[in-house]
């Protein structure tokens, strides 16, 4: 119990100290860019608890969710099949390499051109940007399936489809999962960029609008919300992964 408290104190004292320091130092700040933290906090409460949530947070998250749910599973399905066939890889890998080398954010202007500045262009941008990191990870995961497991699947006469989805994909899940995590981070970035480049609502639009109209305190609150969201998404992803891939950790813990 005491040890737990000690650990908690060690891991959190610096955060508290820095926040207090920020609060104290900025208290009478006249600096244009660094307004008093107390003012930011007050404005944060006014902006985000919970007035603008429906207007700005929900649409952003909805776009991210829709884009991710379309892009990532498609990438797993396409990647799994691509990973199976060496010929298909020879045909497509330079093309895939080219497309994945285009930074996800550079796709945003294209889709704005194609679909206008509505939610569609944002969702498509997110879906496409999310697609490639997961695709690459899945191809690699399926390609590097353990030879012994493949012998086992063959000896039990699993069909190609069965051995793909029952053996190769689950055994490559840790690698696929790290692709999915990168995809989520990329999707989050594209979500913000797509809103910063011409949108009327959403967190990115709010923050950039505040900046352009020199409402520094509002801008700060936008930055803080985005930072916290980015962190929370990562934490949630890792929690889900930890549960889903318990076997992987367990196995590694014993063999290493």
């Amino acid at each position: 119990m005491l040890a737990l408290l000690r650990r908690f104190l060690i891991s959190s004292w610096l955060v508290v100290a820095l926040l207090l320091l920020w609060w104290k130092v900025s208290a009478n700040s006249e600096n244009y860019f660094w307004p008093p933290l107390s003012q930011i906090a007050t404005q944060f409460k006014a902006n985000w608890l919970f007035t603008n949530v429906v207007e700005d947070v929900i649409p952003s998250l909805k776009n991210l969710a829709i884009g991710y749910i379309i892009g990532a599973p498609c990438a797993v399905v396409v990647g799994a099949h691509l990973g199976l066939s060496e010929i298909a890889q020879k045909i497509f890998s330079p093309l895939v390499n080219f497309f994945r080398s285009i930074p996800g954010v550079a796709l945003v202007p294209i889709f704005i051109m194609l679909f206008g500045i509505g939610d569609e262009s944002r969702r498509v941008s997110i879906a496409v940007a999310v697609f490639f990191p997961t695709l690459i990870a899945t191809v690699e995961a399926v390609r590097s399936s353990d030879a012994v497991l493949m012998d086992v699947s063959r000896s039990f006469r699993f069909s190609a489809f069965q051995s793909l989805w029952r053996v190769r994909v689950p055994s490559g899940a840790p690698m696929i999962s790290s692709g999915l995590q990168v995809s989520l981070q990329v999707g989050f970035i594209v979500m913000i960029v797509s809103e910063m480049l011409g949108a009327f609502r959403g967190l990115g639009a709010f923050t950039v609008e505040a900046q352009q109209s020199f409402m520094i305190i509002d801008m700060w609150t936008g930055i803080i919300v985005l930072g916290i969201l980015g962190y929370i998404f990562n934490v949630i992803f890792e929690l889900v992964e930890k549960r889903a891939l318990r076997w992987y950790r367990g196995q590694k813990g014993l063999t290493s």
């Binding site: 860019f33 960029v193 962190y231």
Partner: peptide, 23 residues
């Protein structure tokens, strides 16, 4: 002591602080 702060900052994409730095 720094683990939380570093983990936090590591996953924050630069785009988030772009408006401030631009200003």
């Amino acid at each position: 002591s720094t683990k939380f702060i570093l983990d936090f900052l590591k996953v924050i994409p630069p785009i988030v602080v772009l408006p401030l730095v631009l200003l």
